[in-house]
Design a protein around this nucleic acid. Sequence first.
DNA 1: CCTCGTTAGTTGAAGCGTCAATCGCTGATA
DNA 2: TATCAGCGATTGACGCTTCAACTAACGAGG
Lengths: 166, 166
Amino acid sequence: MQEDVREDGPVTDVKWLSDDEQGWWRAYRDGTARLLDVLGHELERDTGLSLGEYEVLVRLSEAPERTLRMSELAGELAHSRSRLTHTIRRMENAGLVERTPCAQDARGVNCTMTPAGHQRLVAAAPSHVTSVRTYLVDALTTEQMRALGEAMAAVGAALNESAADE
Amino acid sequence: MQEDVREDGPVTDVKWLSDDEQGWWRAYRDGTARLLDVLGHELERDTGLSLGEYEVLVRLSEAPERTLRMSELAGELAHSRSRLTHTIRRMENAGLVERTPCAQDARGVNCTMTPAGHQRLVAAAPSHVTSVRTYLVDALTTEQMRALGEAMAAVGAALNESAADE
DNA sequence: CCTCGTTAGTTGAAGCGTCAATCGCTGATA
DNA sequence: TATCAGCGATTGACGCTTCAACTAACGAGG
């Protein structure tokens, strides 16, 4: 299933990155790290929410009944189940979400956003959107923003494919 | 059905993201999270190095004498000094780097890559480059890759500006 | 109906990053 | 040259993520 050509012989045969490719990769990597850093700090400072908690609230706010199965939520966020369990436990203690057993599947757990959680999201959204606009959207032309989104969507699709066959 | 959090009250006056902008932003955010996740796991699996350690080794390998001041290294990586201290302590224990006092400034500390660290980097590079190529570079056209790099370079520049005046 | 492999979710420990406090050193100023 | 605000780096505590182990329930096949 998995063949690794690189260890077949004494001589490695790797397609290295060109100078351009390396430069673009580094700009992407460094810019992303710093951007997420700033966005997280501003959200935390203005609202007391972490980026992770904010994302959970967003996904729940978009779900029917403001409710999702834990595994669905984990899937949408691309977080591990374990990570989500810990996050939700903290958010439940903070009164932002609630967990209830799932009727259809006794193994499952439904996670619902509380009114307090919704209020918290509504209160936090302006700050976060403003940050995203300031440091990302307004820093780029529309064409650049489109290209960024489409490129990363292609990367996501490639990851889906490679995850599918294995 | 989608809950709309963008309810303009009497107080808020926020420029929300358009549907396109929000879609691109999410594609960027989700794609990036999953990409870095995969790259980190493959590097760890193939070489036992974390992405952070790998980056430290890369920066040191490019520096004169394979040596950098702690603060220079932290600056290049956009890591906090504290984070770097912890990382370097672990890497020093693993024999990958060494710390020596700085002659010019008695407060400073020079960080040098050991031969073992260099060997480790050389051994790890093919795996990592292959991962980056597989999931990023080869998933995109050259134009997309260029656009991605240039967009994120612009974001980095915007962050520099906003950091400059404050 | 029973296995039995798989899936949903949780748990606790260990690892990494953050944060605030700290310490020694530097360099500008008076 | 004495002072002192600021810098370079470290430290330990705390919080979040990962990882492996675990429980419980599902459901296909005999």
